[in-house]
Nucleic acid binder design. Structure first.
Length: 570
RNA sequence: GCGCCUGUAGCUCAGCUGGAUAGAGCAGCGGACUUCUAAUCCGCCGGUCGGGCGUUCGAAUCGCCCCAGGCGCGCCA
């Protein structure tokens, strides 16, 4: 695949510098920075590292070097400023290069083929059956979805797996609770609400009545033993929960290649345990089966409880092996909360001990917790915010705003959903994933400033301009009509998009794309407010329309990568 | 106690992996709609980058030590 415009420029600078400087291309590239203001130039090379070798001050070196360097092709000016050599790009060449690239690539702009022929598995969302889908689960869902989309941009085949929490002690609790207090009719009427209140009631009652916990463990044991009554209830709970989750995934327009949850691996667990034993790493301890990891400075990994039932570490180990055999992945990413860091360290280590060469292709992508009020959101305490309620309120508010700002809008309901849900999604993706977040209605429902609706609004606005223009957009324009600082700033930002996608994927950090989009919106809205795109002047109009087309395309692509909709009007 | 994460303006966050004067948004104040969507744009106000020591020509960024908050650390997931 051909180099992007930005790469061509940096390659050019490297070419110019490498004749005079004894550094290899990557060293030069790494040393390149951006001057504090655009007037100084587009790229800066600081001469600090050369100072030792040349036994001169960086300022003197910069001065001397600048005299010897001659601008070529994409570089128009090379100037010295203190210890820096500043390179100014030739706008006459750069602007057409960038805009023509965006124009010809369209929606595939920003894609590359580094991942061609490779497969990456992404384990994300993974809600617990029988628990309501809370705002906490949203993070894994939207971050994971975006990571999938990012890797697809890089050419990877991406398999999204929803590792449903459909097995474990919680089902023992749920069955026990249902047996005591549950009513079939109620459960059919509003499944997840009822399951949830049974779950909450269980924990409240268990405080007073110690025997409850024992009862729950017993039910889970019977479930694992495959007893009919237990299986029947489990299946039922699973089915009704899944149906509700599906509604949420439909709203978000997120789809999985596999819904193989924890229960899927039940039949493989005995074999997995045998494998660990055979490899000589398993040992009995206080009645449980563990893998001692002390020599790696990690607490032991529990494979089996003293009552014989299994634990989720075992299921994760079995799942990883199964997935490798099924997908032959080159990388597997787990998008799971930071509170499970240790768990994944343990699981990865055990797989490494078992001698799987792909163990180092496993990566846990953790994220900060969502807190509510005074503490962590806890399903047990009934301290959760339902995602559906969040969506509902966001969409309602959006409809109200549309009512006052754009009352004639067609498909109002649909747009309101796209924007309302977009606001929630963007809110979760716009800050670095490791930060804990305090849930706040105010922040969720703010549509001004650095928000999802702002990006969508900008997109809709430029769409509107193109609609009004109504003719075919072409890249055969007079580019010198786009040489204001505002336009140059936009062009420069557009040229950075491919690199932004790569960085976001490498760092598993969708927020890189989100913050980039905000920058692009700011620059583009500034341009919009200062220039009139459609005017009597045909030449200028054609040039600006091309720029608008490129802005719209990149914004649309960016929104798509974040898993958001890009409404043409709002 | 041990380990990991976070700490930048009143609030929410950027800061391109060590470089030039630390940037946005929200909130507050003041401006810009007879013209392509004002969910926008412009201006003002606002910072001992948690604290200290160190490495370096140069530190918000790297190292060490504290402080504060969060999360883990054997039968939950």
């Amino acid at each position: 695949m051909e180099n992007s415009a930005a790469e061509k420029v940096t390659d050019q600078i490297v070419d110019i510098l490498k004749q005079q400087v004894k550094l290899n291309p990557t060293q030069i590239r790494d040393a390149l920075g951006t001057p504090p203001t655009a007037e100084l130039g587009d790229y800066a090379f600081g001469c600090f590292t050369l100072a030792k070798e040349w036994r001169k001050s960086p300022t003197a070196i910069a001065q001397e070097l600048t005299k010897r360097l001659r601008p070529e092709s994409y570089i128009k000016k090379i100037e010295n400023a203190g210890p820096y050599i500043n390179f100014t790009v030739d706008r006459e060449k750069f602007t057409p290069l960038v805009l023509r690239e965006v124009f010809s690539r369209g929606d595939s702009y920003g894609n590359c083929d580094v991942g061609a022929g490779k497969t990456v598995v992404v384990d994300f969302s993974s809600p617990n059956i029988a628990k309501p889908f809370g705002v906490g689960h949203l993070r894994s869902t939207v971050i994971g979805n975006s990571i999938c989309r990012l890797y697809r941009c890089l050419g990877y085949t991406c398999i999204g797996i929803n590792h449903l929490g459909d097995w474990g002690t919680q089902f023992g609790k749920l069955i026990a609770a249902y047996k005591r207090w549950g009513k079939e009719g109620q459960l059919k009427a509003e499944p997840v609400r009822q399951l949830y209140s049974l779950y909450v009631k269980f924990h409240a009652e268990a405080q007073k009545e110690k025997s409850l916990e024992k009862e729950a463990r017993e039910w889970f044991r019977r479930l694992e033993a495959g007893e009919r009554e237990a299986i029947r209830l489990w299946r039922w709970f699973r089915e009704i929960s899944l149906k509700e989750f599906q509604r949420i995934y439909d709203i978000l327009d997120i789809h999985f290649d596999s819904y193989a949850g924890e229960s899927f691996y039940n039949s493989m667990l005995a074999e997995t345990i045998e494998e660990v034993k055979a490899a000589g790493f398993a040992q009995e301890s206080q009645g449980a089966l563990i893998v001692d990891l002390e020599r790696f400075g990690i607490p032991p990994c529990l494979l089996r409880k003293s009552d014989g039932s299994t634990l989720y570490a075992t299921r994760d180990i079995a799942a990883a092996i199964y997935r490798f055999n099924t997908y032959r992945f080159d990388k597997m990413i787990y998008v799971v909360g930071a509170d499970q860091r240790l768990h994944f360290q343990q699981v990865f280590k055990v797989l490494e001990l078992l001698g799987y060469p792909w163990a180092d292709a496993l990566v846990h992508v953790p994220f900060g917790l969502v807190r509510f009020g005074n503490g962590k959101m806890s399903t047990r305490k009934g301290n959760v915010v339902f995602l559906e309620e969040v969506f509902q309120r966001a969409v309602e508010l959006t409809e109200k705003i549309i009512e006052e700002k754009n009352p004639e809008l067609q498909d109002r309901r649909e747009v309101a959903t796209q924007v309302g849900v977009g606001a929630i999604v963007f809110n979760d993706l716009s800050t670095k994933r490791m930060k804990d977040v305090d849930f706040s209605w105010d922040r969720m429902l703010n549509f001004n400033g650095q928000t999802g609706p702002y990006v969508q609004y900008t997109y809709a606005r430029f769409s509107s301009v193109l609609r009004k223009y109504g003719r075919q957009v072409e890249d055969n324009v007079n580019f010198s009509l786009l040489n204001s600082t505002m336009e140059t700033r936009v062009v420069k930002l557009l040229s950075r998009f491919p690199e932004v996608v790569k960085r976001a994927a490498n760092e598993y950090e969708p927020s890189v794309v989100a913050t980039y989009l905000l920058d692009l919106c700011e620059a583009s809205n500034q341009f919009y407010n200062h220039f009139r795109v459609l005017s009597e002047d045909l030449e200028t109009t054609k040039a600006r329309v091309l720029l608008v087309w490129c802005i719209k395309t990149v914004l649309g692509k960016g929104l798509k990568v974040l898993g958001m909709k890009a409404p043409e009007r709002m």
